[in-house]
Protein backbone atom coordinates (compact mmCIF):
# COMPACT_ATOMS: atom_id res chain seq x y z
CA UNK A 1 0.00 0.00 0.00
CA UNK A 2 1.27 3.45 -0.88
CA UNK A 3 -0.81 4.82 1.94
CA UNK A 4 1.20 6.54 4.71
CA UNK A 5 0.78 4.65 7.98
CA UNK A 6 -1.33 6.20 10.70
CA UNK A 7 1.89 6.29 12.71
CA UNK A 8 3.62 8.69 10.35
CA UNK A 9 0.37 10.53 9.75
CA UNK A 10 0.24 11.15 13.48
CA UNK A 11 3.89 12.20 13.78
CA UNK A 12 3.65 14.61 10.84
CA UNK A 13 0.38 16.20 11.80
CA UNK A 14 -0.06 16.02 15.55
CA UNK A 15 1.85 19.27 16.33
CA UNK A 16 -0.05 21.62 14.04
CA UNK A 17 -3.38 19.96 14.78
CA UNK A 18 -2.84 20.40 18.52
CA UNK A 19 -1.99 24.10 18.11
CA UNK A 20 -4.94 24.60 15.79
CA UNK A 21 -7.30 23.00 18.30
CA UNK A 22 -5.90 25.05 21.19
CA UNK A 23 -6.75 28.17 19.21
CA UNK A 24 -10.30 26.97 18.48
CA UNK A 25 -11.06 25.64 21.94
CA UNK A 26 -8.96 27.94 24.13
CA UNK A 27 -8.04 25.01 26.35
CA UNK A 28 -4.98 22.75 26.25
CA UNK A 29 -6.65 19.75 27.88
CA UNK A 30 -9.63 19.75 25.52
CA UNK A 31 -7.26 20.22 22.60
CA UNK A 32 -5.28 17.17 23.71
CA UNK A 33 -8.48 15.13 23.97
CA UNK A 34 -9.75 16.15 20.57
CA UNK A 35 -6.35 15.61 18.92
CA UNK A 36 -6.51 12.07 20.20
CA UNK A 37 -10.14 11.64 19.12
CA UNK A 38 -9.34 12.90 15.63
CA UNK A 39 -6.75 10.19 15.01
CA UNK A 40 -8.94 7.51 16.56
CA UNK A 41 -11.72 8.57 14.18
CA UNK A 42 -9.36 8.35 11.18
CA UNK A 43 -8.13 4.92 12.28
CA UNK A 44 -11.71 3.68 12.57
CA UNK A 45 -12.62 4.97 9.13
CA UNK A 46 -9.54 3.37 7.64
CA UNK A 47 -10.38 0.11 9.32
CA UNK A 48 -13.94 0.14 7.97
CA UNK A 49 -13.16 1.09 4.38
CA UNK A 50 -10.53 -1.01 2.65
CA UNK A 51 -10.36 1.30 -0.35
CA UNK A 52 -9.87 4.32 1.84
CA UNK A 53 -7.00 6.58 0.85
CA UNK A 54 -6.26 10.07 2.03
CA UNK A 55 -5.55 12.42 -0.85
CA UNK A 56 -4.77 15.53 1.13
CA UNK A 57 -3.88 14.57 4.70
CA UNK A 58 -3.86 18.07 6.13
CA UNK A 59 -7.22 19.09 4.68
CA UNK A 60 -8.71 15.74 5.62
CA UNK A 61 -7.48 15.86 9.21
CA UNK A 62 -8.73 19.40 9.57
CA UNK A 63 -12.19 18.38 8.32
CA UNK A 64 -12.40 15.49 10.76
CA UNK A 65 -11.16 17.67 13.64
CA UNK A 66 -13.56 20.45 12.71
CA UNK A 67 -16.46 17.99 12.88
CA UNK A 68 -15.39 17.00 16.38
CA UNK A 69 -15.07 20.64 17.45
CA UNK A 70 -18.57 21.38 16.19
CA UNK A 71 -19.83 18.31 18.01
CA UNK A 72 -18.09 19.46 21.18
CA UNK A 73 -19.76 22.87 21.06
CA UNK A 74 -23.11 21.36 20.19
CA UNK A 75 -22.89 19.10 23.24
CA UNK A 76 -21.88 22.06 25.36
CA UNK A 77 -24.88 24.12 24.26
CA UNK A 78 -27.11 21.08 24.78
CA UNK A 79 -25.74 20.71 28.31
CA UNK A 80 -26.52 24.39 29.01
CA UNK A 81 -30.10 24.06 27.74
CA UNK A 82 -30.50 20.83 29.72
CA UNK A 83 -29.41 22.50 32.97
CA UNK A 84 -31.72 25.41 32.22
CA UNK A 85 -34.63 22.99 31.79
CA UNK A 86 -33.79 21.34 35.15
CA UNK A 87 -33.95 24.76 36.83
CA UNK A 88 -37.16 25.80 35.14
CA UNK A 89 -39.18 22.59 35.35
CA UNK A 90 -39.34 21.47 39.00
CA UNK A 91 -41.04 18.15 38.16
CA UNK A 92 -37.86 16.99 36.45
CA UNK A 93 -35.88 17.01 39.70
CA UNK A 94 -38.22 14.35 41.05
CA UNK A 95 -37.01 11.87 38.46
CA UNK A 96 -34.33 9.37 39.45
CA UNK A 97 -30.69 9.92 38.49
CA UNK A 98 -30.89 6.95 36.19
CA UNK A 99 -33.98 8.21 34.35
CA UNK A 100 -32.38 11.61 33.91
CA UNK A 101 -29.22 10.02 32.57
CA UNK A 102 -31.20 8.03 30.01
CA UNK A 103 -33.20 11.10 29.05
CA UNK A 104 -30.05 13.07 28.43
CA UNK A 105 -28.63 10.27 26.27
CA UNK A 106 -31.84 10.24 24.25
CA UNK A 107 -31.80 14.03 23.82
CA UNK A 108 -28.18 13.86 22.71
CA UNK A 109 -29.06 11.26 20.06
CA UNK A 110 -32.12 13.14 18.81
CA UNK A 111 -30.20 16.41 18.70
CA UNK A 112 -27.53 14.86 16.52
CA UNK A 113 -30.18 13.32 14.31
CA UNK A 114 -32.02 16.61 13.77
CA UNK A 115 -28.94 18.77 13.35
CA UNK A 116 -28.87 18.68 9.57
CA UNK A 117 -32.55 19.20 8.91
CA UNK A 118 -33.62 22.53 7.39
CA UNK A 119 -35.11 24.87 9.98
CA UNK A 120 -38.76 24.63 8.92
CA UNK A 121 -38.67 20.86 8.51
CA UNK A 122 -37.22 20.57 12.00
CA UNK A 123 -39.96 22.80 13.51
CA UNK A 124 -42.70 20.83 11.78
CA UNK A 125 -41.21 17.55 12.93
CA UNK A 126 -40.78 18.67 16.55
CA UNK A 127 -44.33 20.07 16.76
CA UNK A 128 -45.56 16.66 15.67
CA UNK A 129 -43.24 14.45 17.71
CA UNK A 130 -42.78 16.46 20.92
CA UNK A 131 -45.99 18.45 21.19
CA UNK A 132 -48.22 15.89 19.51
CA UNK A 133 -49.88 18.48 17.26
CA UNK A 134 -51.92 17.20 14.30
CA UNK A 135 -50.73 18.02 10.79
CA UNK A 136 -53.63 20.48 10.41
CA UNK A 137 -52.68 22.27 13.65
CA UNK A 138 -49.05 22.51 12.53
CA UNK A 139 -50.08 23.90 9.13
CA UNK A 140 -52.13 26.60 10.83
CA UNK A 141 -49.47 27.42 13.40
CA UNK A 142 -46.73 27.91 10.81
CA UNK A 143 -48.97 29.37 8.10
CA UNK A 144 -48.09 26.67 5.55
CA UNK A 145 -50.20 24.20 3.59
CA UNK A 146 -51.11 20.74 4.78
CA UNK A 147 -49.25 19.37 1.78
CA UNK A 148 -46.07 21.15 2.87
CA UNK A 149 -46.42 19.77 6.39
CA UNK A 150 -46.70 16.25 4.99
CA UNK A 151 -43.69 16.72 2.72
CA UNK A 152 -41.65 18.09 5.63
CA UNK A 153 -42.69 15.16 7.81
CA UNK A 154 -41.69 12.77 5.06
CA UNK A 155 -38.32 14.45 4.60
CA UNK A 156 -37.66 14.34 8.36
CA UNK A 157 -38.66 10.69 8.68
CA UNK A 158 -36.54 9.68 5.68
CA UNK A 159 -33.61 11.64 7.04
CA UNK A 160 -33.87 10.08 10.51
CA UNK A 161 -34.31 6.53 9.21
CA UNK A 162 -31.48 6.87 6.68
CA UNK A 163 -29.20 8.29 9.32
CA UNK A 164 -29.93 5.58 11.89
CA UNK A 165 -29.78 2.80 9.29
CA UNK A 166 -25.99 2.92 9.07
CA UNK A 167 -25.63 3.19 12.85
CA UNK A 168 -27.82 0.16 13.49
CA UNK A 169 -25.48 -2.70 12.62
CA UNK A 170 -27.84 -5.50 13.56
Amino acid sequence: MSQPSVDSLYKDNQPWLFNWLVKKLGCQHRAEDLTHDTFVRILQTQYKQKEFTIEQPKAYIRTVANGLVVDYFRKKSLEKAYQQALNEIPELTQLSEETLYLLKETLEQLDRLLERLPKRVKSVFLYSQLDGLTYAAIAEKLGISLRTVKRDMQQAYIHCLTFSWSEDSE
Binding site: A81, Y82, A85, I89, L92, L103, L107, L110, D131
Partner: peptide, 15 residues
Protein backbone atom coordinates in the same frame (compact mmCIF):
# COMPACT_ATOMS: atom_id res chain seq x y z
CA UNK B 1 -37.39 8.01 21.82
CA UNK B 2 -39.54 11.08 21.26
CA UNK B 3 -42.32 9.75 23.48
CA UNK B 4 -39.88 9.14 26.34
CA UNK B 5 -38.90 12.83 26.46
CA UNK B 6 -41.17 15.09 28.60
CA UNK B 7 -42.33 17.80 26.22
CA UNK B 8 -41.11 20.69 28.40
CA UNK B 9 -37.61 19.27 28.50
CA UNK B 10 -37.61 18.44 24.80
CA UNK B 11 -38.83 21.90 23.92
CA UNK B 12 -36.12 23.65 25.95
CA UNK B 13 -33.31 21.43 24.69
CA UNK B 14 -34.14 20.48 21.10
CA UNK B 15 -35.65 23.85 20.15
Amino acid sequence: SFQSVPSGLGNTVLK
